[in-house]
Design a protein around this nucleic acid. Structure first.
Lengths: 194, 194
DNA sequence: GTCTATAATCGGATAGAC
DNA sequence: GTCTATCCGATTATAGAC
């Protein structure tokens, strides 16, 4: 991948983020060196510092932009809490399968953030969790869901749905639509909506 | 923690494993140095190599012994598949809360194993997953569970149950018995047993 | 914006004394 | 079994040329 000299600011910036995301997800933040990222991009290590002040800022940028994209992409729908829950389940699975590396990073590399940066990401994540918890509480109030503890159910369901990234492989036995169907069946039962 | 000279082989060995497990779980394998582990134990870095040939072997030992303990501790019970499933749910949650660091490591640090070592752990894990899948299939055959895809349900349920380590804090709002009750309610619904 | 070169530190692992 | 000392390669980040 080594390149000779030349400026390509428009492509290098996104490429650094893409390769860093991919490598961090596969090997872990601490195990990836700036040289490795630079090599994957096709530049020398020193060039990375024209785009990020340091490695930590690069990780924070990846996590924060993912969480902001997630929150921006999510839109609740009006009406039946069960339909809203199905919408959330399919949204979460589709997002997780579209951006498996970003999703994986966002709950695996929190421990490598500084305390301040951790607080920023934890805040964004709690907003996303609140979206699901609201649906569950509305479903209980409407009498269409039976849930012992909506806070715990929120954590449990998100863990279950996010887990799809642990085993899903492109071109595997099940396509996305089918996976969404199966998970929705599990979730619908879990909230007592059968 | 620094100590003066002296041999304490009986305590140092277990202590190295305890501290390595704790540090690996909190910061990640790659982010923890042998010097850090030694410092937490109260010995110099060189002394660690009397107990492990290298850092990788230390990680493998932690993961493998955890998986073997898990498999040794698990015993299915005869009878009703629903009772067996409840037994599995409570076993898995209790184990996860008793050994949160080991559980976390066992599904977070697989990527830092060499391919050979990875295969060893993956084999042990698949045996554990098979225990749950068998119960689900028996429940379907007996007509007491409704499950679209038992293989996928196995992965989904284990992800959900293991997720308890992400939020549980000792002395928190809910005690273990109550957490087991709540998760069992979610699982029972998810497998269509209500 | 990118390169080359380098500073300063830290990493895993080993040797030999006690 | 543990310590001290050390080898040697890798790491993050910076400086200055182009």
């Amino acid at each position: 991948m080594a390149r000779t000299q030349g400026s390509r600011a428009d492509v290098t910036g996104p490429l650094i983020r893409d390769q860093a995301r991919r490598l961090f997800a596969r090997q872990g933040y601490a195990a990836v060196s700036m040289r490795q990222i630079a090599s994957a991009v096709g530049v020398q290590a020193g060039a990375l510092y024209a785009y990020t002040p340091d490695k930590q800022a690069l990780l924070l940028d990846l996590l924060e932009s993912h969480m902001r994209n997630l929150l921006a992409a999510w839109t609740d729908i009006p009406g039946d809490p069960l339909a809203r829950l199905e919408h959330f389940v399919r949204f979460h699975i589709d997002t997780s399968l579209d951006h498996p590396d970003a999703v994986f990073l966002s709950y695996m590399e929190l421990r490598n953030l500084t305390p301040q940066n951790f607080a920023r990401i934890a805040d964004l994540r709690s907003r996303y969790e609140a979206a699901l918890e609201t649906i569950l509480r509305d479903g209980m109030a409407a009498g269409v869901m039976r849930i012992d503890d909506p806070r715990l159910a929120t954590m449990a369901l998100i863990a279950m749905l996010t887990g799809v990234t642990n085993w899903y492989r492109e071109g595997g036995r099940l396509d996305r639509r089918r996976i969404g169907d199966i998970y929705w069946g599990l979730v619908r039962g879990a909230v007592g909506a059968d």
